[in-house]
C-alpha cells in the first residue's frame, strides 16, 4: 500500500438489521455498501452526500464505533477492521472524532478541564508539565481563554463548545480527525471561525481530516479531495477543483447545481438540474446503478448493471456508464 496514505478503505460495508419482532420481517439496510477511498497524510478529504447516503456511517465505522460488515480499514498501515475494542484503544488515541452537536457531545456536569482531562486518564498519559498546563495549552490552541478551564459547557456559546470538542479531540495528539458535520449546527457567522481554526490546526499539527458534511460550500472550501456518496455507494472521487469545476457524474452535477450561490445575478442566469422524486429506501435500493431512478440520462444498461468506480484520470474516479462530458470551464 501507499505509505503516504494515513487511511485506506477497501470494499467497506456496513449493513444494519432493523425492525421485526420474533426474528421476522427484519430488513437489511445497506448503509455503506462497498466503499473504497484513501486519505493521504496531511490531506483533507471531504465526504459529501445527502441524508441517508451513508457518509456518517462511513465516519463512524472508520472510528470503529460500528464494526464493519465487510472490507478493511487500513489505518497507518495496519488493518484495524477486525481489532477488538481493547486492541482499538491504543490506536484510537491516534484517530479522534469531532461531532455535529457540540452540546450533546459534552457532559454538562463536567467542567471543560475534566472533559479534556478524561482523554489523558483513559489513555494513562502524563503530559510533560502536568495535565492542567496541557489542557490550558489546548484551550489556547483552539482560541479559548485558558482561564476558563473550570467552566461548564453551558457557559459557552455554540461555537465555543465546538472549540472545546476540538480541544478534546486534539488532547492525544491524533494523526487523523474524523469530523462529522462539525459546523452545520453553528450560526453562519460562527462557521467561518471554526473552519479557519480547523485549517490552522491542520497546518500547525500536520493533521489529516476526514470531513463528513452535507454543505458543499464548506466542503469545497476545506477539502483537498472530495468523495461523493449516494445510497451507500461512491459515485465520484476527485480533487476539489476537478470535482467542482468538472463534475462527471450526473448526481454530482445535480448536487452542485442545487447549491444556492449567494449572488443574485449568477442565480438568475443559472440553470438548475432539478432532480425528481426522493431518495429510494436504502432497504430496497434500485437494481443496477443506485442513482438510476432519479437520473435524467438513465438507459437500459444503468438498470441492469451497476457501474463500478473507475479511475478515469490520476485524480478522478467515477462510477457511471454514461458520464457527463468534460466542460471547458
Amino acid at each position: 500500500m501507499n505509505s503516504e496514505n494515513i487511511l485506506e478503505l477497501r470494499g467497506l460495508q456496513k449493513h444494519f438489521k432493523v425492525g421485526g419482532a420474533f426474528g421476522r420481517g427484519k430488513t437489511l439496510i445497506k448503509a455503506v455498501d462497498g466503499v473504497d477511498f484513501t486519505v493521504g497524510r496531511g490531506e483533507t478529504v471531504g465526504l459529501v452526500g445527502e441524508s441517508g447516503c451513508g457518509k456518517t456511517t462511513v465516519g463512524r465505522t472508520v472510528m470503529k464505533i460500528y464494526d464493519p460488515t465487510a472490507g478493511s480499514i487500513i489505518f497507518e498501515g495496519e488493518d484495524i477492521s477486525k481489532l477488538s475494542r481493547r486492541e482499538m484503544k491504543v490506536r484510537r488515541s491516534k484517530m479522534q472524532m469531532i461531532f455535529q452537536d457540540p452540546y450533546a457531545s459534552l457532559n454538562p456536569r463536567h467542567t471543560v478541564g475534566t472533559i479534556i482531562e478524561a482523554a489523558f486518564i483513559i489513555h494513562k498519559i502524563e503530559p510533560t508539565g502536568g495535565r492542567v498546563k496541557a489542557i490550558q495549552e489546548l484551550l489556547e490552541m483552539v482560541g479559548l481563554n485558558p482561564e476558563h478551564i473550570n467552566r461548564f459547557p453551558h457557559e459557552f456559546s455554540g461555537g465555543q463548545r465546538q472549540r472545546i470538542g476540538i480541544a478534546r479531540a486534539l488532547a492525544l495528539k491524533p494523526h487523523l480527525i474524523v469530523a462529522d458535520e462539525p459546523v452545520s449546527a453553528l450560526d453562519v457567522s460562527i462557521q467561518a471561525q471554526v473552519v479557519n481554526l480547523l485549517d490552522d490546526l491542520q497546518k500547525e499539527l500536520g493533521l489529516s481530516y476526514l470531513f463528513v458534511a452535507h454543505d458543499l460550500s464548506v466542503v469545497q472550501h476545506i477539502s483537498d479531495r472530495v468523495v461523493v456518496m449516494y445510497l451507500g455507494k461512491v459515485m465520484e472521487i476527485a480533487t476539489t477543483i476537478e470535482l467542482f469545476a468538472n463534475p462527471r457524474h450526473p448526481y454530482t452535477k445535480a448536487l452542485l447545481s442545487a447549491v444556492p450561490i449567494p449572488d443574485p445575478i449568477i442565480e438568475r442566469k443559472r440553470e438548475r438540474i432539478i432532480l425528481t422524486g426522493d431518495l429510494p429506501s436504502p432497504a430496497n435500493p434500485p437494481t443496477g446503478c443506485v442513482f438510476s431512478t432519479r437520473c435524467w440520462k438513465v438507459q437500459d444498461r444503468c438498470i441492469s448493471e451497476a457501474p463500478v468506480p473507475i479511475q478515469i484520470s490520476p485524480n478522478h474516479t467515477l462510477a457511471c456508464h454514461f458520464p457527463e462530458g468534460t466542460s471547458n470551464s
Binding site: V188, S189, Q191, A192, Q193, V195, N196, D199, L216, S217, V218, Q220, H221, T240, I241, F244, A245, L256, V259, I261, P262, D263, I266
Partner: peptide, 14 residues
C-alpha cells in the same frame, strides 16, 4: 461564507 463557485484555499473572513 464559502461559495461553491469560488475555488482556492483563501482564508475565510470570519
Amino acid at each position: 461564507i464559502p461559495r461553491v463557485d469560488q475555488f482556492g484555499s483563501h482564508r475565510l473572513k470570519a
